[in-house]
Design a protein around this nucleic acid. Structure first.
Length: 762
DNA sequence: TGCCTGCGTTCAACC
DNA sequence: AACGCAGGCA
């Protein structure tokens, strides 16, 4: 074999650890791959190696990732490596897409037809809402969202209703949680639908109840590769274990690659435990650690590594790099969110003026709503940018409406789709009529559409509603007939046109001047175009359900990338900006409230992921004032800032931040008065006077938008004896001002403290 | 039935 | 700040 290996050009340039991970193709293998250690390269090379060794055909390798992005990249890189021999890689994809593929084949084993629809979150919530109503449960107290979380949680754990233990769901609606889950699952079956969690869950059921089916997959998949193993939840873990552990213990060729320090999906059920337990689950597993970082300079790597050591729950790795020196990680304090966007934008302009690319630059935010201030600033300055993630194309109302039309025409049992569009555009069919239809459907045990066809024949529904419903079912019939002769894009165009849906938005755009309508019409055009890239409507719909994003295509455009920290995993950029490092935002208060220390550690891993995206330079920002829920609040810099090793950090604060363990600010340098807010001409529809009681108290600008300046002053202005308010400790008065430090006696705590954050004058 | 208005709630990340 | 919901009214 040695001869074969040395003749393999794809192995050139691998370091010894990488090479070990690639060549150990038989038996279970755990690759602990730190950030920037060439994980994807190892996975793709290993894939290639298996093929080159003649151990398996491409169709015999199961390779799963979490994101479509990762799957796409794997596919491209493997294709590159193996050149023209590639005959498609049918079993390379996300967990959900592979599971969906398997479920389509065996759908009847769990009571579905292979044409089942995949429900998105919105459909799921509407269905849950209906169920709660039908069960006479107060949806204010027990919200559909709440129930949805509960059910998703069970599905993530691999629990079908039968597998719930007696205490499960006890806390929901007086112990009715489990029953509601059962009802929900049976409704899904009636609707011939599956939600995201079901894709995996049904797979488990099939594998567990039908060993013959499982045996087929054992025979089929000779090798299994798993990316981001630290992010697998229990259901995914069980799924992999079923596929990998053959009854005769032969050929457990499962290779998992992961990094416990980059586990950031605890909220969706990821269990870091899975990776910690691997050697127990698969006795005799080899373990390879990749610790040489090829991505970042020394300071960046050291800053991130220092931060992550604050986490208790980790396997521990020591990343190293040959790339000594470089820029320290920059930490800057700014006045508010607008200033943050301004400063970062001008840094980017600076970077560009030095001959670097916008493509080199990423702005990574904690939550997608933080993107807005950056978008506004980029637009104002004419900086090119792309948003990765964020509000998804396929989640927009107009796109879902269009899909609902297509689903209705394709299936006469898709109640959720039918209900969505029966009165869109308005046809004079109100809530009362829809209610009647639902009751009739339930009574007759048929679909909404079938019930409608029945009811328009009787006098149950009269007048305008009856006429409208009649016309509507006739439309559906006509579209179904037309569908036989037309391509799916032509059909879609025709439906949108004849239903009056496009016209509805055209009207809105013309008369009311609704500025969003124009965009919606463009989205609809884009939708038709996207459909054209698929051969059939079914293929398109599958893509929509599982991918939920449009290929943003043209990566050759030079643009700044704007995305969430979660969305940035697996990417790298020479220059990375990390705004919004304030307590409450990052680490997210919600995460701390819900998950305590585990939540904090996950937030810290997220910080680690953020910093390690940077190749040359990372800049962290925090603000003194931030608007939260429409209210100005003072901020406390994130504790993660204090946890960065000081010798790898350069502080550029100009907001009066003081204190902290690193005593990093070096004092207040004054807020520049020359900040000029860019004029925000964004249109908001005027509502009734006093539509928001907060707004009544606010000043109005000429465009009607509300402004209220932060009440906070930089701390250096304070004098002994002054009464102040501190976000964390409440009211108190200043006992001493000395250099950068304020000593304060707090009323509530009753003791003196040296402040570590911003204060408010009262 | 549908629009207007006021009130109350929510506001993390992804497939 | 942005939405969803419900009650009042045309």
């Amino acid at each position: 074999m040695a001869g074969v290996v040395s003749a393999a050009p794809y192995l050139d340039g691998l370091n010894p650890e990488q090479r070990a991970a690639v060549e150990a193709i038989d038996g279970p293998l755990l690759v602990l791959a730190g950030a920037g250690t060439g994980k994807t390269r190892v996975l793709t090379t290993r894939f290639t190696h298996i093929l080159a060794q003649g151990k398996a055909w491409p169709s015999q390798i199961l390779c799963v990732t979490f994101t479509n992005k990762a799957a796409r990249e794997m596919r491209e890189r493997v294709s590159e490596l193996i050149g023209e021999r590639v005959e498609g890689l049918p079993w390379l994809g996300t967990f959900h897409s592979v599971a969906a593929k398997i479920l389509r084949i065996h759908a009847e084993l769990v009571g579905l037809k292979s044409s089942f629809t995949i429900l998105d979150t919105d459909d799921q919530l509407r269905l849950l809402k209906q169920i709660l109503r039908a069960e006479n449960i107060d949806e204010k107290r027990w919200t559909p969202r709440h129930l949805g979380h509960l059910i998703d949680g069970w599905k993530n754990k691999g629990k079908t209703p039968e597998k719930l233990s007696s205490g499960d769901g006890y806390g929901f609606a007086e112990g009715r949680g489990a029953k509601l889950y059962r009802i929900y699952q049976s409704r899904l079956k009636d609707l011939n639908a599956a939600d995201f969690g079901d894709l995996l869950l049904h797979n488990l059921t099939i594998f567990q109840k039908h060993p013959d089916v499982l045996a087929k997959y054992h025979a089929k998949f000779k090798y299994l590769l798993v990316d981001e193993y630290q992010d697998t939840n229990v259901a995914q873990y069980l799924w992999l274990r079923l596929l990998a552990q053959r009854p005769d213990k032969s050929e457990q060729n499962l290779c998992v690659v992961g990094d416990d320090d980059q586990s950031i999906y605890g909220w969706r059920g990821a269990e870091v435990d899975n990776i910690l337990r691997f050697e127990t689950d698969f006795p005799g597993a080899k373990v390879v650690r990749l610790e040489r970082n090829y991505r970042s300079t020394e300071h960046i790597l050291a800053a991130a590594s220092g931060l992550i050591t604050a986490n208790k729950d980790r396997l521990g790795k020591t990343l190293w790099t040959d790339d000594k020196g470089g820029d320290k990680v920059v930490v800057s304090g700014v006045w508010d969110g607008a200033a943050e966007a301004r400063v970062i934008s001008s840094e980017i302009e600076n970077w560009f003026s030095k001959g670097r690319k916008y493509n080199d630059v990423a702005v990574l935010v904690r939550a997608s709503r933080q993107m807005r201030s950056f978008e506004e600033r980029f637009i104002a300055l004419g900086l090119p940018y792309r948003v990765i993630g964020g509000p998804r194309f396929f989640e927009r109302a107009e796109i879902r409406d269009a899909h609902a039309y297509l689903r209705t025409v394709k299936s006469d049992t898709d109640d959720l789709a039918f209900e969505r569009i029966v009165n869109v555009p308005k046809r004079g069919i109100g809530a009362v009529t829809v209610q009647k239809l639902q009751m009739a459907a339930r009574a007759m045990g048929v679909s909404l559409e079938a019930a409608t066809r029945q009811l328009v024949k009787t006098d149950e529904i009269r007048g305008k509603a009856r006429t409208a419903l009649r016309a509507f079912v006739l439309d559906i019939d006509r579209w179904r007939t037309a569908g036989a002769d037309l391509s799916h894009t032509e059909l879609a165009e025709r439906i949108l046109d004849e239903s009056g849906y496009t016209a509805m938005w055209k009207r809105a755009s013309g008369r009311n001047g609704d500025p969003k309508a124009e965009g919606r019409l463009e989205n609809l055009k884009e939708l038709i175009q996207a459909m054209g890239e698929f051969d059939t409507l079914e293929a398109y719909m599958e893509h929509v359900s599982l991918v939920m994003e449009l290929d943003t295509g043209a990566a050759d455009d030079d643009k700044i990338s704007l995305m969430t920290l979660h969305g940035s995993k697996g990417l790298e950029f020479p220059l990375v900006f990390l705004p919004g490092w304030e307590e409450g935002s990052f680490p997210s208060q919600k995460s701390l409230d819900e998950s305590g220390m585990a939540g904090l550690e996950e937030e810290r891993r997220l910080a680690y992921v953020g910093i390690t995206r940077a190749r040359e330079r990372a800049e962290i920002y925090f603000t003194a004032n931030r608007q939260i829920y429409g209210q100005w609040q003072s901020s406390i810099p994130s504790r993660f800032i204090d946890e960065l090793p000081a010798e790898h950090v350069e502080v550029k604060s100009d907001t009066g931040y003081f204190g902290g363990e690193n005593n990093m600010a070096g004092g207040y340098t004054g807020v520049s008065e020359s900040f000029v807010d860019s004029f925000d001409a964004s249109y908001t529809k005027p509502r009734s006077p006093g539509w928001n009681r907060y707004q009544q108290n606010q000043n109005k600008t000429i465009d009607g938008s509300a402004t209220r300046k932060p009440t906070r002053k930089p701390s250096s202005n304070f004098k002994t004896g002054e009464r102040i308010f501190h976000q964390k400790f409440g009211y108190g008065h200043i006992t001493n001002v000395s250099g950068n430090k304020l000593s304060v006696a707090f009323e509530k705590a009753g003791d003196k403290k040296v402040l570590d954050g911003f204060v408010e004058r009262v």
